[in-house]
Design a protein around this nucleic acid. Structure first.
Lengths: 223, 223
DNA sequence: CTGGGCTGTTTCGTATCGTAAACATTCTTG
DNA sequence: CAAGAATGTTTACGATACGAAACAGCCCAG
């Protein structure tokens, strides 16, 4: 009947195998009874929200791992459907301008991307106090294309990055980027990932949300 | 008690509001009783796996949507725990060399990253037939730092990208990168995301897996 | 004010989840 | 083979999820 139970069981067993754990070990990490885990893996039981969260946290895997169709058996059909590709030529993309930054969202023709790549030009040049630090769900990676920047974060000393250097950070921690010195602007690539990026129905929503989250007082002047 | 129920209720209500739907409409789309939905939103009830899938499919939202802590109410405690940051200076990182590519994995001190950033130097210069195209779960973004490259993919004509141009693609589709012309090498940034990246326990596992997935016959000569 | 749609909430019975404990199976180790 | 440890399965029962139906609070038309 319930092919759903089978799905969950398959996923859990795959994850457990990949992590090379026994049921007892999973139970210890997640606080879920061994008997429960056994029944789940044998499709005799499903799970509730609470237990799914416990599993995800205890095993340190993304929650979506439990809702995926078997990744070891690539579904040719589905693959063809999702064989997407998008090219961004120079200056291609959606430009969102704010007083301190110019955001160029690239590869915007694809929606429902897991990652959002942005080419950001930073004009803000002094440490004049930022109203609030940027803060949003997920993680981001940045690479300095041109110039030198200062990265201010909530829990670390400001760090200076030169061309060719990069940083990876949790976006939930407040953060802000400035040019390191002098009046020159700097340019970085910024790739953001949030587990719920898929929520955004369209790119416009996303750009709007991101712009809104950035810094108080900054109003995106969409062109 | 169960702060989990509150989490779910909050998430569901937020999603329903965003989609501008009534409980009845959600019920119609998902096949879940109105009473159930009401109780969920009021934190009187949790949900099982099956119902979560029904919701996700019926509302056409990513499953992870229901597992997000409300971004408008940042949990200071949990936030501090995940306030990670990693800086990569020039030539910092784990170098994995193959005949055609040099992969420099950056920000490797952080494990369990949602994204894997790699600075790739491409030496392969001719269209001499590749044994197999690279193919792995997830999506990736690439940006050309230096030189010109040709991107070969399974379902598209080869595309040429110059410095400053970028591409976003589904990694499940076969793909390979070459330098566009002449003997000069090219350099790109490559950011990979896979829903299962969290599974990799250590960076070594990841590098090994990625290298293994790349091209048959290429053996990573770890330094 | 009455009636009737439209919304969301509460009641209550049944099905399912979830666990401790008992059981089964395999593998050591002597 | 017996003892024992480690693994996964089954049993039995309390706790929880789930839905049909009854309920309650709108808002509007007549």
């Amino acid at each position: 009947m319930s092919t759903r139970k089978a799905m969950l069981g398959q996923a859990l067993r795959a994850i457990r195998r990949r992590l090379d754990l026994t049921l007892t070990e999973v139970a210890a990490r997640t606080g879920i009874a061994v008997s429960t885990l056994s029944k789940v893996e044998n499709s005799q039981l499903s799970l509730t929200y609470d237990k799914l969260v416990q599993l995800s946290e205890g095993l340190e895997v993304d929650i979506s791992a439990f809702f995926e169709t078997d990744p070891t058996v690539p579904d040719r059909l589905h693959q063809a459907v999702t064989a997407r590709r998008s090219i961004a030529r120079k200056n291609d993309g959606l430009l969102v301008q704010t007083p301190n930054y110019d955001y160029l969202y690239v590869c915007t023709e694809l929606t429902h991307k897991a990652m959002v790549p942005i080419i950001t030009t930073i004009r803000a040049r002094s440490i004049v106090e930022f109203p609030t630090l940027s803060r949003h769900a997920g993680e981001e990676f940045l690479y300095v294309l041109r110039g030198r920047i200062m990265v201010h974060t909530e829990y670390y000393e400001p760090a200076e990055l030169g061309t060719g250097e990069s940083m990876y950070l949790d976006s939930t921690m407040g953060h802000a980027f400035l040019t390191a010195m002098g009046p020159k602007s700097a340019q970085i690539i910024n790739v953001c990932h949030s587990p719920n990026v898929g929520h955004f129905r369209s790119l416009l929503d996303l750009a709007r949300a991101q712009a809104g989250e950035l810094l108080d007082g900054e109003k995106p002047a969409t062109t």
